[in-house]
């Protein structure tokens, strides 16, 4: 069955402020989709619209090509940005309750609650009040609340925030498992390395607009193809300084533009001479790789000429610049 979750031209404004501007993207079943963007980019608004908590001003949300209906939406799993369950209710009781609110019958809700608490290592806390649990364990119960009704789609707003590394791995495994069971999984995160590690697909949103979306590997490869790192030595073995090398290269290939070397940028003032020696250039759509190579060879002894595959973090920084 086609369980693809799709936003089509979704717009939403709060007063004067446009939170989402004709946002369209797809969350494919069987894959995890990372939703990244700066604070206030519109991630939470988009997720709330998917869940029907907010209504869009324009556009629509579809699953399998059909508009979302109430009974279908009730089978979604959701972890809101603002976490929260009933503090004075027993852990198992509230999972059973939430399962029933999502349409499960009592027996199924109890069975699922039991299974989930076992899986999450919380079986011995089933009859404790939520507020007596540690924050980490409360977060796990929150995950259980999103999963208790065996959702047909998962929408998780910052599911990793506040988790320790081990819990992040466990959560990642949960998402992966759901995705492999054929569920479209959408989650937002600020931790780009994490998204890089866990995501099949990426949607990058900036100021209410989608600036990049698709397979994470493809996105990186698409940018990698036109970007090169060049290091050239003088005959005496000393590296050619970056400004000189850049001047030589751009003179030969006008289309080439310098990319701030993330390594150098990160090292800041402590950058070594060797790091300063190389340059990273984008060829742009018209640039000629052979011309760039020839120019590099002409500049001295070529030490390195390699395509650069940008990290997701780099793609994100560029996309939102």
């Amino acid at each position: 069955m086609d369980r693809e979750l799709r936003l089509v031209g979704v717009s939403r404004a709060f007063g004067e402020h446009v939170a989402l501007d004709e946002v369209s993207f797809t969350v494919r079943p069987g894959r995890t989709t990372g939703f990244i963007g700066a604070n206030g980019a519109g991630k939470t608004t988009a997720m709330r619209i998917i869940l029907g908590v907010l209504a869009p001003d324009a556009g629509r949300v579809e699953i399998g090509g059909r508009p979302l209906t109430l009974p279908v939406r009730a089978r979604f799993g959701y972890m809101p940005e603002e976490r929260g369950l009933y503090p004075k209710m027993k852990v198992a009781d509230q999972l059973v309750y939430l399962g029933r609110v999502h349409g499960l019958d009592l027996a199924t809700a109890r069975r699922r609650t039991h299974e989930l608490l076992e899986q999450l290592g919380l079986a011995d806390r089933a009859d404790d009040h939520l507020q007596t649990l540690s924050l980490g364990n409360q977060q796990r119960v929150q995950v259980a609340a999103a999963l208790v009704h065996d959702p047909i789609a998962l929408v998780l707003d910052e599911p990793f925030s506040g988790l320790d590394p081990l819990a992040i791995d466990a959560m990642g495994a949960q998402l992966r498992e759901r995705a492999e069971a054929g569920v479209p999984v959408l989650f937002s995160s600020h931790q780009l390395e994490l998204v890089e590690r866990l995501c099949d697909d990426v949607v990058i949103i900036h100021e209410g607009r989608v600036v990049a979306a698709g397979d994470a590997g493809d996105l990186r490869a698409a940018r990698a193809g036109r970007r090169y790192r060049v290091v050239v030595e003088r005959p005496d073995g000393a590296p050619v300084p970056s400004p000189d090398l850049l001047a030589t290269l751009t003179a030969a290939v006008p289309a080439a533009t310098r990319v701030a070397d993330p390594t150098a940028v990160r090292s800041g003032a402590s950058a070594t001479d060797e790091e300063l020696a190389g340059v990273v250039v984008d060829l742009g759509p018209d640039g000629d790789e052979d011309a760039l190579l020839a120019a590099a060879l002409g500049a001295g002894r070529l030490r390195e000429f390699a395509p650069v595959v940008p990290t997701l973090a780099e793609i994100f920084r560029e996309a939102v610049r």
């Binding site: 029907g52 908590v53 109430l70 009730a74 959701y78 369950l85 009933y86």
Partner: peptide, 17 residues
Amino acid sequence: VEEKQSRVVELLVAAVP
């Protein structure tokens, strides 16, 4: 107000009208 204060209301509203 307890459901609002504990934020659980967003989960509920996502599931039912």
